[in-house]
Design a protein around this nucleic acid. Structure first.
Lengths: 326, 326
DNA sequence: TTGTAGGCGTTATCAA
DNA sequence: TTGATAACGCCTACAA
């Protein structure tokens, strides 16, 4: 790779002049510019971004630490984030933690060394006290002391689900989720607010008794046996809100296996937007999160953090994704 | 961020000594080492990887240019590649081109500037003559003049599909794919070999007449009308090989809509491994590609390219992914 | 309008 | 055993 020095020598000028041409800064005689541009084209010179990074103390790199980019919603988020940051000339490093906290910390460390401009963190681990709030971290769907965050309007989504089921005439309700609120871990992700919004809305509308099923967090999967038992023991439920489309899907399958019709006998609402299960025949009615809007919010938060040195949190609106299960 | 200089000053030594401690190179008196290590911990010093990159002329960065990381198979490949390169301390930059050739070229350019150690390219565009073979590029499922490549054994996969359908007793066959061999574009991706392997195997076994349907490439999607017409006009076909699970899925749905039973009346084989359609009720029988093995092959090719300065191509074995449609 | 020189944070070489 | 010092490639005062 040609360097600025070689270009300068070949053009018979000083490196500063070449730099001026490359960066279109300062005055350069037209003739000199022409000459230099010729040489640049000839040798295929491109400024070395690493050297620039060092000088500017800015790498134009953003890291995205997430559990797994093959999870559809996370993948979408990665995609949109990359797309939007591309416009600002940022590159995105993917960092799959596979939910492993040790790996998350390793990433955070590596990134510190790499002087990444910003790190977007998506984690469910008990990592809070290991994070230095001075690092340029932005968290998604999770509040961490001193770290700016972006989250979907999970609470509003829970309320919306409750309202929809209520308006559809349901009398008996159930929530199913793995947000692990409470006992097993001290973690409280923003996702828990789906449950809270749902329950509170129902309470406010006179519904006291709601089946609230909470299973252990892990890989975003729910075990078939668990679903089976759950449905078997609650065959009188008419409206179900599941914490994700994946859980909703599992529930619907089980309901149908037991002879219940969806949505005639039981109505089911998922969360994420229903895009994951387009192949399942039935489109899941869902509370949608927009990866694109979230990506935009993340971009803004990153920019704020970097340019204005101030934290700014953002709640991204959710939307009603009509499907066939309500 | 503390620098080596600050550490040196604080420890009352020269920077070279600190460097020796950090890199465990050269001799350092035990006492000095202790002192320096203390200071390092105290100020939280981490060597700046950017400065190191500049000196070493190596960035420890690999870029993966692909159409879209939300496409399941590509997402899996990204995931596995990231996992495997993580072991070697490489970071992976995602570069979604959205099939846009201009963007692909922009990425390649950016990466040149960023002195990325290697770039994995996955493209279906007519990009061949715009690529400088001197760049550290590794191509997946596509041969480009002078560029080392990794590909699945697409030809073998086509043969395997043919054998399976033949062994299952099918008499009349069809291939459906968007590999766009021929007319509309000069591109010939490795994926075309699925078709070729399939057809050649059948010919070799005395089957002359095979319905060979080729639709236009674009977004890896097949239009419902196209599938509908296709099936309507070929209701006597008994064995179908689709270029991807997505196409296979569309075909199966259409077949069932028209009262054909799968696999009783018509047998269908897809390509990719059937993982994308686990929710569709029926598991698609498929020729599987292993993202993990491909990632390993890519890693090896990258390493070869970098360390031995020589190109080495690799064909990754496919496997039989048994499902319900054969 | 142009060139020289200093510095970004490291590592490696060479004296001391 | 240790410490200056010269790179790595670039940008930006400051001088000329």
């Amino acid at each position: 790779m040609a360097t600025i020095k070689e270009v300068a020598k070949k053009a018979g000028v000083g490196i500063a002049t070449v730099s001026r041409v490359v960066n279109k800064s300062g005055y350069v005689k037209e003739e000199t510019r022409k000459k230099i541009e010729e040489v640049i084209k000839e040798v295929g010179y491109k400024p070395n971004e690493i050297a620039r990074s060092m000088l500017r103390q800015k790498s134009h790199l953003v890291a995205f630490v997430l559990p797994n980019n093959t999870h559809l919603f996370f993948g979408e988020l990665l995609y949109e984030l990359e797309q939007i940051l591309f416009q600002d000339d940022y590159k995105v490093m993917v960092c799959n933690s596979s939910e492993d906290m040790k790996k998350e910390l390793e990433f955070i460390n590596m990134l510190k060394n790499n002087r990444v401009d910003s790190l977007v963190l998506l984690t469910n681990n008990d990592i809070e006290d290991q994070i230095d709030p001075k690092l340029p971290i932005v968290s998604f769907d999770r509040r961490l002391e001193g770290v700016p965050y972006v989250a979907s309007d999970n609470y509003g989504g829970g309320q919306m689900a409750a309202k929809l089921l209520l308006d559809a005439g349901c009398k008996k309700f159930m929530f199913v989720g793995d947000d692990a609120q409470g006992e097993s871990t001290p973690i409280k992700t923003e996702v828990s607010k789906r449950r809270i919004g749902f329950l509170e809305y129902l309470h406010q509308h006179g519904i006291e008794e709601v089946v609230n099923y909470e299973y252990h967090l892990g890989n975003y999967l729910i075990k078939p046996e668990v679903v089976s038992d759950l449905i078997k023991n609650n065959l009188d439920v008419e409206g179900i809100f599941a914490i994700s489309d994946a859980v909703a899907f599992a529930i619907i399958k089980e309901l149908e296996k037991r002879g219940k019709r969806v949505p005639e006998d039981v109505k089911v609402i998922g969360f994420d937007g229903g895009r994951s299960f387009l192949n399942s025949g039935k489109r899941i009615t869902s509370i949608g999160q927009s990866p694109k809007d979230i990506a935009k919010a993340l971009r803004n938060t990153i920019t704020n953090l970097y340019e204005k040195k101030e934290a700014s949190n953002q709640i991204v609106p959710i939307y009603y994704a009509k499907g066939d299960t309500l």
